[in-house]
């Protein structure tokens, strides 16, 4: 589904060059829920943005469903993104002038697809916002806003859901809500999810955890691995 091969990413700031990713090899299978963990500045968000086609790697390949992203034009990447990828952000990023319903259907309109109201209703029900479709984002709580964002990320049935610190702005209770929601989409619909987080409680929902440090993957653990906890505790020390 996702294949990241020997990817590096550099950013130039004047004459200074910072290497954020230093040779990443990484893949995600269909139906997997992967959490990418690491301290801030370790490059985990950058990797997510590369997978989302918002930027291209300095070297290396990124494949999405067999299509190489780094050779595509910005426009082609945008089109791939709006068909195959759903994005959830830390700070929700809802469009303030649009109602909940309009926010959710935005990706369909952007892609000139027909809106099926039943599907929207179903999704609204899944995120428990059935009666909120006419509200504006500023009338909702943070948790509700993030649920709208999740619905928006899933309305076009993307192959992959990318979530960048989806619980970073929320308290434990609302975080738990959001994570449960993501888990249920993962378990019930087989949604492939890649989530960046620095929160172990969030990462615990994933099948696999990838640990990032200073631009390289330090280690990967499967949930069924014996040393899962050991790695985590070491990592968190």
């Amino acid at each position: 589904m996702i294949k990241v091969a020997d990817v590096t990413k550099e950013f130039k700031n004047g004459k200074e060059v910072t290497t954020v990713l230093k040779g990443i090899d990484f893949s995600v299978k269909e139906g997997e829920f992967v959490a990418i963990m690491g301290p801030s500045g370790s490059g985990k968000s950058t990797l997510l943005q590369l997978i989302g086609g918002m930027d291209i790697p300095s070297t290396g390949r990124i494949e999405l469903d067999g299509e190489e992203l780094q050779t595509k034009s910005e426009k082609q990447r945008t089109i791939i993104r709006r068909k195959d990828i759903g994005f959830v952000f830390q700070n929700y990023q809802l469009l303030p002038t649009l109602t909940v319903y309009e926010n959710i259907t935005f990706p369909l309109h952007a892609d000139r697809q027909k809106v099926n109201p039943d599907e929207v209703q179903e999704l609204l029900k899944a995120v428990a916002l059935t009666d909120y479709e006419k509200r504006f984002p500023h009338e909702l709580s943070g948790g509700q806003q993030q649920r709208v964002a999740i619905a928006r990320a899933l309305i076009h049935k993307p192959a992959i859901l990318l979530a960048d610190e989806p619980t970073g702005n929320l308290d434990r209770e609302r975080s738990s809500d959001i994570l449960d929601l993501l888990s249920s989409f993962h378990q019930e619909r087989g949604q492939t999810i890649v989530m960046v987080t620095h929160d172990m409680f969030a990462a615990g929902h994933a099948d696999r955890i990838v640990l990032f440090k200073d631009g390289v993957i330090e280690t990967e653990v499967q949930r069924e691995d014996e040393d899962y906890a050991e790695f985590l505790s070491r990592f968190m020390a």
């Binding site: 906890a229 050991e230 505790s233």
Partner: peptide
């Protein structure tokens, strides 16, 4: 302390799974 932490992380993972079960 590390040993205790590991145990607790295991508990976290275990409980998270359990929570998913309870959800279902």
């Amino acid at each position: 302390i590390q040993a205790q932490k590991q145990t607790m992380i295991k508990d976290v993972l275990h409980l998270t799974q359990m929570k998913q079960q309870m959800n279902r």
